[in-house]
Nucleic acid binder design. Sequence first.
RNA 1: CGGGGUGUAGCGCAGCCCGGUUAGCGCAUCUGGUUUGGGACCAGAGGGUCGCAGGUUCGAAUCCUGCCACCCCGACCA
Length: 490
Amino acid sequence: MAKFLTNREENYSQWYNDLVIKADLAENSAVRGCMVIKPYGYAIWEKIQAGLDKLFKETGHVNAYFPLFIPKSFFSKEASHVEGFAKECAVVTHYRLKNDGKGGVIVDPAAKLEEELIVRPTSETIIWNTYKNWIHSYRDLPILINQWANVVRWEMRTRLFLRTAEFLWQEGHTAHATREEAIEETQKMINVYASFAENSMALPVIKGFKSENERFAGALETLAIEALMQDGKALQTGTSHFLGQNFAKAFDVQFTDNTGKLDYVWATSWGVSTRLMGALIMAHSDNNGLVLPPKLAPIQVVIIPIYKKTEQLSEISAIASKIKTDLEAKGITVKYDDRDNNKPGWKFADYELKGVPARIAIGPRDVENKTVEIARRDTLEKQVISVDKIADYIPALLGDIQKNIYSKALNFRKENTFHVDKWDDFTRILDETGGFIMAHWDGTRETEEKIKEETKATIRCIPFDAPEEKGKCILTGKPSNKRVLFARSY
RNA sequence: CGGGGUGUAGCGCAGCCCGGUUAGCGCAUCUGGUUUGGGACCAGAGGGUCGCAGGUUCGAAUCCUGCCACCCCGACCA
């Protein structure tokens, strides 16, 4: 396990500062709890966006954009929604500053807003307020819209990537004529997230239902994917909510069905955020820095020349640019780093820190032998192969790295998933190793809260694929018919 | 909001306890040269409201008071 994780008392924030920031991903901003995402980090986000967007389109969704500001009154329309978000809202009260006569500025008291505006913490309210005007008949349904946006949640405590005050995300908001169709959409989208996590991020996830305690404010059912990080903590990496008719009723969105009957519209919403980048970092990194799955790496292959004289460099460059062209023809992103200001060793270390999956080094020895040295980031293994085999070798290597990173993470999860029947084991495992704990639960809110109080562990989800099994609740001993997933989480 | 910590060059830090030359070190930057198969070396150069405000003192980065910001832990939470 990575050095930065071996001491469980240490947390990831320190590592972010020491390592990730050097890898040019992000830094804290002057604004409380916000982050500056640097170009290299943003390039990873763009890959995530592109991958998800493709899946959304394939499942029939379109993109749109709604306002950043939400009138305060919208929030009071759905009772549990306001209760969930009221504590963490940024509020706009004025629209103008003025000179204070001392060289500074003050908020102009004359420019007070009639009704305060809330900076969106999520967009259900403003979107359903809009949908009201778009939906009259069953012919207007379904509406399958996604929005890429930033949202603000004024959390008491923030953590880089995992819980920032402002974060980037996508939120899908769909409207349907029937309950069944909405439920199907909710399930479809959690599957989209799971397949993206597993196929693109190389991150194994567990799909399941949230318990009542952990449910989204305003939802009838919340589905989630949960991943295990290398320090033994769980991270919720995506959610999909079945909202029933709650928002349609709150915003009075009714439609005429094909029998002429008036009914409220059924809704879903679903989202993932820049937290995915936190998941990527924490699931795969090692002591040398990031380990990016090839499918999300902004640079998939870096070519580094090793040379003494300029004549050597021009020879090497000729070979390198041929390799670059050949690989790019196969859709691979290649960077040839012939900068003269750093030595090869420095570059090796730097691209490892950045998580570039494969590195090709070409030196005089290689020129002579018509070979190159290839190093893979996931295992740090190096091997020398003949130049003319590269165009076939690299695509296969990238595929192999993608698979290997996934199976490494999956093995880690298997080794750190425990089936537990005794309370003593439950608390001991949480304290000693962390990880996922599959245990029986009596299904009550009270029991979950009590367990949280005593151990800080919560029910991450009730897995879809949990087999029927007679058992007794880990805390109360009351009967239970399946195990649920417990963990301490971010 | 409670507890702890930190603020000194672009970055990372020492100096503060015990006030006293011109505030130092590493990395980075710039110049010249030698180097280049795992984070090079030599010589030189530039770069500072010591977080802010006030106080004590002949003299404050150092002591005192107030304020601000950031980080960590907790409460809270997608």
